[in-house]
Write a protein that binds this DNA or RNA. Structure first.
Length: 488
RNA sequence: CGGGGCGUAGCGCAGUCCGGUUAGCGCACCUGCUUUGGGAGCAGGGGGUCGUGAGUUCGAAUCCCACCGCCCCGACCA
């Protein structure tokens, strides 16, 4: 084995880094915390982006683009917002470099200082609401349903590829509505879109919930989220949808005249998912052999490997299979590279997460079969060349379903009830995963539990049943359980 | 910003303690031949400001001083 991957049981974090590197998803950049997304990693993100974009458009949204640079003064207009983001903003202070008079290369030209400093967007609420003020006059201009695909920058102290990088790619939806009810409905609709995408495309089951005030987005009235569970028992916030109330409308003075000729502030939402999803995808399905991709997010779903190398009769069969698969909309690659051996290719495609591999040799052709290997279970079987298109199509469906079911079972088995603090700690440390427990509803208690255990409240599930109980820490009365976990 | 570790070929490392031929190994790369149903074998070959600067010395990857950078662990967070 030329490319060892650290086993998950030995060091989960090293395993994750190995997958990112060895599956050619991304590599480190010269700038700390940033990442170079390589073609294979970017192809996965593109598939995510394209699927989500279709879903956004189906729900009535259009795309636009707002600038990377934001006047510093904008950030301070919404008090909560500035609290949340000010300490992680990159700031542009100058607009020119010059040769160092002392011969030390280029230096910042001190005469090129900006009058108003600019910040690199950590999110775009401020510039968008500043713009919306001019776009919205009347109830006839509403709702305004806009999304943008962009990069943003948050100067985090500690970064990990895809999961938390200084610069990341994402989409941010920003909508304006005439009524509170409509904005809340939009917030929940987009949460549903995210949940559907996570489960149907990523095969990653999620829990829909609402954040506690403590975990809420800076400037939101309510933050809804989808939470997923990674293989190591830690939770991952995979997407958020915020009901912003009238906070930004008031901060940026965005008003409209209602049918009744009343001037009112608009109601707002924002919602986003990022390249973090790629990290979630990795940690939901992959194994010690490498990346495992669900067929719907695999840049290439099927690879055909000739054995030993491409020969006339193998080519003929391969071409026929490719035609059949392409007709069914399956992406397929015929690897005719004769500088690599079959065994090398097998290992390499497994590392990269290719869902299905077809091997064709003389022996197979004589028997009118091909060898089909599925990445999710690593099982190999001989499949008849007759109706190969249908067989492979069904196999891809099975793999997609199997990945989801496995992940769903893992999630279901790792939501554990705890009714006292000792059990809580025991489950958190030994079983891991989500813990469903009573909480007295105060930020103080939430912080105290975090302090003692590192676990945070991930969300209050939307489908929560009301149930009287007592807080696991304080013993005070509680009306429902909430989900705790250690989180990424 | 605290604690720990590390900078030597594209990657991973040895050599540094105890200074001394032409700085070495594995992978990768190039050429040729033989191979080819799970990361091929043999032979040959190319590739180095030893992180940077300034010292000590006849001589520095190795010793001294300063600086720079990176990684891991914590505090912050999607």
């Amino acid at each position: 084995m030329a490319k060892e991957i650290t086993p998950r049981t030995e060091d989960y974090s090293a395993w994750y880094n190995d997958i990112v590197k060895k599956a050619h998803l991304a590599e480190n950049s010269p700038v700390k915390g940033c990442m170079i997304i390589k073609p294979h990693g970017f192809a996965v993100w593109e598939l995510m982006r394209d699927a989500l974009d279709v879903m956004f458009k189906k729900t009535g949204h259009v795309n636009a683009y707002f600038p990377l640079l934001i006047p510093k003064s904008f950030l301070s207009k919404e008090a909560q917002h500035v609290d949340g983001f000010a300490k992680e903003c990159a700031v542009v202070t100058h607009h020119r470099l010059m040769n160092d008079p002392n011969g030390g290369g280029v230096v910042v030209d001190p005469t090129a200082k900006l009058e108003e400093e600019l910040i690199i967007r950590p999110t775009s609420e401020t510039i968008i609401w500043d713009t919306y003020r001019n776009w919205i006059q009347s109830y006839r201009d509403l709702p305004l349903l806009i999304n943008q695909w962009a990069n943003v920058m948050r100067w985090e102290m500690r970064t990990r590829p895809f999961l938390r990088t200084t610069e990341f790619l994402w989409q941010e939806g920003h909508t304006a509505h005439a009524t509170r009810e409509e904005a809340v409905q939009e917030t929940l609709q987009m949460l549903d879109v995210y949940a559907e995408f996570a489960e149907q495309y990523m095969a990653m089951p999620v829990i829909k919930g609402v954040k506690t005030p403590n975990e809420r987005f800076a400037g939101a009235e309510d933050t809804y989220c989808i939470e997923a569970l990674m293989q190591d028992g830690k939770a991952l916030q995979a997407g958020t949808s915020h009901f912003l109330g009238q906070n930004f409308a008031k901060a940026f003075d965005v008003t409209f005249l209602s049918k009744e000729n009343q001037r009112e502030h608009v109601w707002a939402t924002s919602w986003g998912v990022s390249t973090r999803l790629v990290g979630g995808l990795i940690m939901t399905h992959s194994d010690d052999e490498g990346l495992v991709l669900p067929p719907k997010l695999a840049p290439t779903q099927v690879v055909i490997v000739p054995i030993p190398t491409a020969q006339a009769e193998v080519n003929e069969v391969a071409e026929k299979i490719m035609r059949e698969l392409k007709d069914k909309g399956i992406t397929v690659k015929y690897d005719t590279d004769d500088t690599k051996r079959a065994g090398y290719k097998f290992a390499e495609y497994e590392l990269r997460g290719m869902p299905v591999r077809i091997a064709i040799g003389k022996r197979d052709i004589e028997n009118n079969v091909v060898e089909v290997a599925r990445r999710d279970t690593r099982e190999k079987s001989s499949i008849s060349l007759d109706n190969i298109g249908d067989s492979i199509q069904q196999l891809l469906i099975d793999i997609q379903a199997n990945l989801f079911n496995k992940a769903k079972q893992y999630l279901d088995e790792h939501i554990t009830r705890a009714d006292n603090f000792d059990d809580f700690v025991d489950i958190l440390e030994n079983k891991t995963g989500f813990i469903s427990a009573h909480w007295d509803g105060t930020t103080e208690t939430e912080e105290a539990i975090k302090e003692k255990t590192k676990a945070t409240i991930r969300c209050i599930p939307l489908d929560n049943e009301k149930e009287d109980g007592v807080c696991i820490l304080t013993g005070k009365p509680s009306s429902q359980r909430v989900l705790f976990a250690k989180a990424y």
